[in-house]
Simulated scan of single mutants.
Amino acid sequence: MFTKRVTVKEKKTIAVIDIGTNSFHLLIVRIDEKGAYHLLRRERKFVKLALDGIHKISKKQFDKGVATLASFRTIVEQYEPDDVLAFGTAAIREAENGREFIDKVKQELNLSIYCIDGDTEATMIYYGVRNAVNLTHKPVLIVDIGGGSVEFVIGDEGQIYWQTSLPIGASLLKDRYHHHDPMPKREIDQLRNDLRRELATVKKQVDLYEPDQLIGVAGSFETVADIISANNTDFHYSHDQVAHHLPVDKFLDLHKRLTASTLDERLAIKGMHPERADMIVVASILTHLIIEDYGIREMSLSRYGLKEGVLYSVVNQIPIAAAEL
Rank of each mutant, 00 (worst) to 15 (best):
273 H>Q: 15
298 E>Y: 07
310 V>M: 09
294 Y>R: 00
286 L>A: 02
206 V>D: 04
261 S>T: 11
214 L>Y: 01
260 A>D: 12
213 Q>E: 14
300 S>T: 07
301 L>G: 09
251 F>D: 09
282 V>C: 02
308 E>N: 09
250 K>T: 12
284 S>N: 02
305 G>Q: 08
209 Y>W: 11
268 A>T: 13
293 D>P: 05
242 V>G: 10
301 L>P: 04
224 V>Y: 04
199 L>N: 09
195 L>T: 05
299 M>W: 00
308 E>L: 04
276 R>L: 13
218 A>L: 07
228 I>S: 05
196 R>K: 15
303 R>H: 06
215 I>M: 10
307 K>G: 10
211 P>L: 07
243 A>P: 05
252 L>A: 15
261 S>E: 11
266 R>C: 04
233 T>F: 05
267 L>V: 08
286 L>Y: 01
234 D>A: 11
231 N>G: 02
295 G>N: 00
250 K>F: 06
303 R>I: 06
210 E>H: 10
238 S>F: 10
208 L>D: 09
195 L>W: 05
238 S>H: 13
269 I>F: 10
216 G>T: 10
296 I>E: 00
236 H>W: 00
303 R>T: 12
243 A>L: 07
206 V>P: 00
225 A>W: 04
260 A>N: 11
308 E>C: 07
271 G>P: 04
283 A>E: 00
221 F>H: 04
207 D>E: 15
208 L>G: 03
287 T>C: 08
212 D>V: 15
237 Y>E: 13
292 E>L: 04
265 E>C: 03
246 L>T: 11
288 H>V: 07
274 P>I: 08
211 P>G: 12
297 R>V: 15
253 D>N: 15
191 L>T: 03
267 L>K: 12
197 R>Y: 13
304 Y>V: 03
293 D>S: 14
218 A>R: 02
264 D>K: 06
248 V>Y: 00
204 K>F: 02
257 R>M: 10
198 E>Y: 06
237 Y>K: 11
286 L>N: 00
222 E>L: 10
261 S>D: 14
277 A>Y: 01
280 I>D: 02
221 F>R: 02
277 A>G: 09
274 P>D: 04
262 T>Y: 01
280 I>Y: 01
287 T>Y: 00
248 V>W: 00
189 D>S: 07
280 I>F: 07
267 L>N: 14
272 M>A: 14
271 G>K: 04
240 D>E: 13
236 H>M: 03
